[in-house]
């Protein structure tokens, strides 16, 4: 059982998953979602931003939205502790200290994740209430406050994924390289 499963997995890995493809369903349960259903449900944004919807927003526009819808929890400028564990803004140079401050600017590796999370999860309790343009604008404002873009800059589906976050290279794959089901070197917990 176990070895046949492993062989199957090896085949999957070797063929890039193609072995999974089959022509028909075995159980014929479930239904096919409509394109509209998929479009509505699919809010995951990849680092390359290919799912980003059309729209735009500037840091200036974002400042007003932030003041109205975000500041009550995150503080007037985002640099405050607010009701979260880390501020949204600042923290530069703290990652090697005993009290690292993980902000959007000091820590987050991709700007697309900021967009994804604001649309997905903010404002808390009214998730999904911001328009697409408002999400671009608030993202732009927070990037501006972290010194990553200019106040006059505006963002859209093309420009957002191109932003190079300051800590982009601060993330490393677990070392030494290790794959599930391989024996780990002693004491190494990936």
């Amino acid at each position: 059982m176990r070895s046949s499963l492993n062989l199957f997995l090896l085949a999957v890995l070797a063929s890039g998953g193609a072995v999974l493809a089959q022509t028909s369903s075995t159980y014929n349960l479930g239904r096919t979602p409509t394109q509209e259903e998929i479009r509505t449900w699919d809010i995951a944004i990849s680092p390359d931003g290919k799912e980003l919807p059309p729209g735009r927003g500037s840091a200036k526009e974002g400042a007003a939205i932030y003041a109205q819808k975000c500041a009550s929890c995150h503080g007037p400028t985002g640099a405050e502790q607010g009701q979260t564990d880390f501020p949204l803004v600042g923290g530069k140079g703290t990652l090697t200290t005993l009290h690292p401050v993980r902000t959007l600017g000091s820590f987050w590796p991709f700007a697309t994740t900021i967009w994804d999370y604001i649309r997905r999860a903010m404002p808390q309790g009214k998730e999904g209430s911001l328009t697409v343009d408002e999400v671009y604008a608030v993202t732009a404002y927070l990037l501006y406050r972290n010194g990553i873009i200019q106040e006059s800059d505006s963002l859209n589906a093309t420009s957002l994924p191109k932003i190079q976050m300051p800590n982009r290279n601060g993330f490393v794959p677990a070392k030494p390289a290790w794959k599930p089901r391989e024996k780990r070197p002693f004491g190494f917990y990936p």
Binding site: S46, F107, P190
Partner: peptide, 25 residues
Amino acid sequence: YMTQHESTHNANLHPDGKAHWFRFE
């Protein structure tokens, strides 16, 4: 997809300031 959780809280920050991604077992 480098979601919010895996880009932030779940990335294990080491003393050298580097964060380790995608620990599994």
